[in-house]
Design a binder for these strands. Structure first.
Lengths: 340, 340
DNA sequence: CTGAAAGCGCTAACAT
DNA sequence: ATGTTAGCGCTTTCAG
């Protein structure tokens, strides 16, 4: 059943020329005459020739493959990033291998090793919740395989990061709540060892401070951003006396569930409690009231990360020279936070 | 900067044995003595050896790669499927190459060709809206590369399909609306050339018929399932006189936007109009009222599709013998449809 | 149990 | 403008 594959030798034989000429012609090398090129293309087409990538990769020592390492796949944000990455890499002729860690450090380390053995030409990565260090990226750096981090990053000095200004976004979100008259603002977020969350938290703290509002540790709720955690956070907030009058929540999914749970508990939003989310997922426009959020341009992040990597790969810029690329983010005000 | 890669020859040289023995040892071939194996493993580890996949692939003539062709990536359902596929293929040691067509037939054809040239060992695919035929899958079949379709499928006789019973699901959804007292039931769906939509439509029609409700062509709204289309459908429905009292909508995202738009137009849901969606996306539980829907087990579909493919690849079952695998789906009743 | 050697298909010197 | 040839790293007969 298995049909024999056509090789450049088969083409060469039939045309009584050398395989080298065929190889050159197929790459459209200008050194080959138009006439022979034409003959070769036609015959290749006719014989159903398809180039053998392994032979080529083996010869050239590169895979034309880029690794995409993320904590999860079932997130709107990650999927936007992926679509941005995909469009750029495809355009540039690279394949993508996707690996996700389910937010586990151990799995992330395993994935790194797997991609390393698969010899990806470059890596685009965002870290898991509990990733402690970047030792597992060392092999890539040591072998000269460029790595670009996005979103959840660690600045290593070897790999650029593509991010937004999480500090400013956190500050803006909090400031907005203050301007709406909120004085007891809860912050629902996740592990503060991750830059994205710690920066947003720092923005929250500083906005409070600049408005002379004391920080209340009980209003800081740290969890794993799961559905259960979101429900728990809402229940916790509803029980507080006095109840908070605002909440800055580090992602839209959690914010949506948080709002829903509070509504079920009889809390009016935004009247009793104003809510600001993060990410600008589509979900924020489907819930009632519509969710104020921070627009986080996933697709652009993906495009920039991929472009940076490919630039480096094609000998353009050097990835080591870039520490970070910061994209614009902005507050999107909707009904969930407007008290006035 | 580029560090030379360690090969089996380097290991062989250092140990004064042949590369063949090293190769065998590395594969844990029982024919190699425990002692030499141990030495080899240790040295390989120490020298930082990593096998060269292209050399191996070149030699063996297979890529250990599976193609995943879908119409889009930004869909909850597709992502569930992907996560199911990913877990199975990773487990079995296959890489995944992902290609999406943005619902374009032309792009789908191009993707098929690209994956064909990349010599994937197998293919898992779901068709675009306007895909007319499966000629672009012919090359795979002809070369003996197995293809498994899921969700949006065409029965070819060569490739199995993994699906749910869309007819029954459509019937159940409609029947449920009838039982809630609906008599003028709109159906919002997409291109009836795709099996999923035509089958659901058939279920809708037959449920109406079995309940002696006449079919009204004006209540059938066909669009591209975009946000704009969903808004348009809602506006269209709101203007009808008499207004429909129920709607069966072919996906949850569209249903959510449809409901939201109607609510803004002053229509009470479910009282004035009951809604049933399709897919059981998380979004359905976040909107108000919560959305009645058909549970469509994406992850299981992905797992089954991948297992079927890999089974075939490892010489287990023969993919040609299976025409289709139908997984269970079921009606999930929530507030958006309950009038009583 | 181990070794020698051919060859997978392609590319890139180095000729001519 | 084209041909010759070596070799990328591995697996797999075939021999011992």
């Amino acid at each position: 059943m298995k049909v024999k594959e056509v090789t450049i030798y088969d083409i060469a034989d039939r045309l009584n020329i050398s395989s080298a000429t065929v190889s050159r012609a197929l790459k459209d090398d200008p050194v080959v005459s138009k006439k022979t090129k034409k003959k070769i293309f036609e015959l290749a087409e006719k014989m159903g020739y398809r180039p053998n990538r392994f032979a080529r990769d083996l010869r050239k020592g590169k895979t034309n493959t880029i690794g995409f390492m993320v904590p999860k796949l079932n997130s709107n944000f990650i999927n936007s990033v992926l679509s941005g990455v995909e469009s750029v890499t495809t355009e540039a002729g690279y394949d993508l291998i996707i690996a996700h860690s389910s937010e586990s450090y151990a799995k992330e380390v395993a994935n790194a090793s797997s991609l390393f053995y698969k010899r990806v030409d470059g890596l685009i990565a965002s870290l898991s919740f509990d990733t402690k260090d970047t030792a597992h990226f060392r092999p890539f750096i040591d072998k000269g395989v460029p790595v670009v981090f996005f979103d959840r990053v660690i600045v290593t000095g070897d790999s650029p990061t593509v991010i937004i200004d999480n500090y400013k976004s956190g500050y803006d979100a909090t400031q907005h709540l203050v301007e709406q008259g909120c004085r007891r603002i809860a912050h629902v977020t996740s592990s503060l060892t991750r830059n994205v969350y710690s920066e947003r938290y720092r923005g929250y703290r500083n906005a409070l401070k600049d408005n002379k509002i004391g920080f209340n540790e009980r209003l800081l709720i740290i969890n794993d951003l799961s559905e259960e955690a979101a429900i728990g956070a809402a229940q916790q907030v509803a029980k507080m006396k006095p109840m908070p009058d605002g909440a800055f929540i580090t992602n839209d999914f959690v914010a949506a569930i948080f709002m829903k749970t509070l509504k079920e508990l009889g809390v009016a939003i935004p009247k009793d409690l104003a809510v600001v989310g993060f990410n600008n997922d589509i979900i924020g426009r489907l819930v009632d009231p519509e969710l104020t959020t921070i627009n986080y341009p996933g697709r652009e992040i993906g495009e920039v990360a991929a472009k940076t990597l490919i630039d480096h790969l094609s000998g353009g810029s050097n990835v080591k020279k870039i520490q970070s690329i910061v994209l614009n983010s902005s507050l999107v005000i909707r009904k969930s936070s407007v008290k006035k």
